[in-house]
Structures are given as structure tokens and as C-alpha cells.
Computed example of a mutant assay.
Amino acid sequence: MKFKTLSLVVLALAVSGCGGVDPNSPQGQRQTIFKQMLKVSEDLGGMLRGRIAFKEQAFVEGAVELDQLTRTPWQHFPQVREEGDESRARDEVWQRQARFQELARAMEASTAALVAATAAHPLTPETLAAPMQRVEDSCKACHEEFRAF
């Protein structure tokens, strides 16, 4: 009985380790960064739309964090798609590098503008709505061209 139980546990552990993305691979690293970007962006948007209480300092810190994050995922897109890369990135990422990089720089510019907007006081959801919308629009533009849904 113990042998059967042990065998099932070992089998379950072996199966659970299959099929995941290596967190140290370029794909795993960029997925982690994009998930962090999404979380921060959702929190900022939630503050502006009233889903989360607007806290000026938290918004400023979130904007800075988002700006820093947006500068990091692009380095984890190798020049050529790696074999076995099962990401949601379309092949166009590698076929149209110039356009992909253009949209990456637009994203960086939009988050930098959001950080700059947090310097004007008093901060209100109304004054931050337009810069945050530009951040969201830049995310959407890249997803529409380069992400397979």
C-alpha cells in the first residue's frame, strides 16, 4: 500500500513539472515582467476609476514602478524566436523587429509621461486620467499587432 501511494505521489510530481515555462528562459522572464506590469497598471487604473481608493503616494510609486518595468521585457525577446517557444507572441515580433521596437519605445514614453504627470500637484484622478489612458493605449496597440490571443 505504501509503495502504491509513494508511486502515485512521485508520478503526480513528475507530471506537474511538465509543460511549464522555465522561469529563467527569456519567455519565462518576459512573462513575469508582463504580469507585474499588468498588476501595477490594473491598480493604477483602479484608483482612477474608483475601484480602489485613490492614494496619491501609492499612485506615484506605482507610476514609477510601471515606468521601470516597461524598460525591461524587451531584452528578453531574442533576435530569433527560440525553438519550442510557446508564447502568445506572434511571429511578427521577430519578422517586424523595427515596428515592435517602435511600439516598445512608445510604451516607455507613455509611462515616462505618466511619471512626469505625477509631479503636478495636487494629484487627482481627473488630472491623471489622460496620461494613464495613453499608457493603456500603448499596451493595446502592441497587443493588437503582436500578441496572439
Results as ranks from 00 to 15, higher is better:
S41D: 09
A120E: 13
G84W: 02
G45M: 09
G45S: 12
E83W: 12
D85C: 04
K39F: 11
M132P: 00
L103S: 06
F59N: 11
V40S: 01
W94Y: 15
W94C: 15
F34P: 11
E136T: 11
A12Y: 00
R30H: 05
L128M: 05
H143P: 13
P125N: 07
A120V: 04
K39I: 11
D67Y: 10
M47E: 06
V93A: 07
R99I: 14
A14L: 04
R30Q: 09
G62M: 10
R99G: 02
Q31V: 07
A104L: 02
Q133H: 15
M107K: 14
D22N: 12
V115H: 04
S87N: 06
P125K: 01
V93F: 13
Q79S: 13
R105S: 14
E145H: 12
E42H: 01
E145Q: 13
A109R: 15
H143S: 14
A109G: 05
H76K: 15
Q57A: 10
R134I: 08
E92Y: 12
Q133A: 15
A113C: 07
K140S: 13
F77G: 00
F59R: 08
A58V: 04
C18D: 04
E42V: 13
R30Y: 09
L48G: 02
A130E: 15
P26S: 09
G62Q: 04
E61F: 00
I33H: 05
S110C: 06
K35L: 14
F54W: 00
G20Q: 10
V93G: 06
L8E: 00
A116C: 05
G17N: 08
R134M: 14
S110M: 04
L6P: 01
P125I: 00
I52T: 12
A89W: 04
A120Q: 15
A12K: 03
Q79V: 13
K35I: 12
Q68M: 10
L69V: 05
L6A: 10
G19A: 05
T124H: 08
M47F: 03
Q57R: 07
D67R: 14
P131F: 06
A116Q: 13
A106Q: 15
W94T: 14
G19M: 12
R81F: 07
V60L: 08
R147F: 12
D43I: 11
S110I: 05
V60Y: 04
D22G: 03
V9W: 06
T118C: 07
